[in-house]
Design a protein around this nucleic acid. Structure first.
Lengths: 207, 207
DNA sequence: CTATGTGAATTTATTCACAGCA
DNA sequence: TGCTGTGAATAAATTCACATAG
């Protein structure tokens, strides 16, 4: 193996592999071949081998990859080997769904706080989280929360992001359907659930 | 202009442009330059010009692109110039959020039906949609609905997809965090909201 | 004999730089 | 002069093909 920068596209696939490896891991399966993993996650075997080649020799020719080592290494690269606390801003329909979503745990995320501007929601308990007033955002610094999930209306997105940046948040998962501007030191990932739907008709065969 | 296949990456950006153009369109703005659009949507101006060059001459040198024509053309390419009815399967937290989400409309989508397997939900009205039993899925064919949004638990994803394919669905937006197998004639787009969060720590600077 | 790891070849996408039009 | 449109140059990602290790 030789050191190389990990391509962004490989980084994008790493969580897919991680997700796919969890079942074999739980089953106590020791190793998995690129072909078997490929069938499981929907990525070509040679793509998988290339991706893994960027960060180490895990494979045993004739056998496959050690599942446990692989999971550990992928987590390490994605910096998921430590737990992350995240804050949710915006407890509307989507926010509630985010709070209830079980899928964050496997990556080591814990939604530790929720904020809203609406007084009728503040103080309410959802799951085991009490909704706080957005004016409490500055407490995030003390609470060592540097990750935020934004599920606010579009009009509120930019100034909510500004507020988050101000209190030291370094990463934002943005569910608002708009582009937001942040300093370079802050990373934003935007999920616009309608945008992926918007591409479906293009790829659908004529009926 | 010269005909060329539109690259997938360009197709991926088209909904971004569409989203960004809606405001100028509503404002009655006649034209927009690649630079101004760039500032608005977060894509380089030369990337925008290149993207647009794949499907026609809209620009007027010295002025910019005619907003209305551009919107029309992008919609046409994405096959969004006709309205699309979609069915929702799985009315849990995420499903409810999808039903309430206002962002589908701008692309011409209308969620016209909702299904669940849980008897406590069937018959309930959410917004203006009455939740139906999944055993009603076969009615989709008659109702001319060929698009589905799946928000079911992971364990139910594959067989729900199978059922959708069987009743003639041609496109699926899958919110379940897993890979699902469908015939080639069916297009699946998967959104795993946790997966994007999983990449954030990698891109965040060390605190 | 099976499955990895990786250079090389190919394909795809981005960026540049500037000719040419309004 | 301002901004588009696009070939050419560069960069990035995917796919192939096979040497090599267990």
């Amino acid at each position: 193996m030789r050191y190389r920068r990990i391509p962004d596209e490989t980084v994008r696939r790493l969580p897919i592999y991680l997700r796919g490896l969890l079942f074999p891991l739980e089953q106590g399966q020791e190793s998995i071949s690129s072909q078997d993993l490929a069938d499981f996650v929907g990525v070509n075997p040679w793509q998988i081998r290339k991706d893994f080649s960027y960060f180490g020799d895990f494979g045993t020719p004739g056998v496959g990859y050690n599942v446990e080592k692989l999971v550990k290494q992928i987590k390490k690269i994605l910096k998921l080997d430590v737990a992350h606390k995240a804050a949710l801003v915006g407890v509307g329909n989507l926010g509630v769904a985010v709070l209830a979503y079980p899928g964050f745990k496997i990556y080591g995320f814990d939604i530790a706080a929720a904020f809203d501007i609406n007084h009728s929601k503040i103080g309410k308990k959802i799951g085991n989280i009490v909704v706080e007033d957005v004016s409490n955002l500055p407490t995030l610094k003390k609470r060592k929360i540097s990750l935020a999930i934004m599920a606010v209306p579009r009009d509120a997105a930019q100034h909510t992001a500004d507020a988050l940046v101000k209190v030291g948040v370094k990463g934002i998962l943005n569910f608002s359907p708009c582009y937001i501007t942040v300093p370079k030191k802050v990373k934003v990932m935007t999920i616009d659930i309608a945008m992926d739907l918007a591409r479906l008709p293009y790829y659908m065969p004529a009926h």
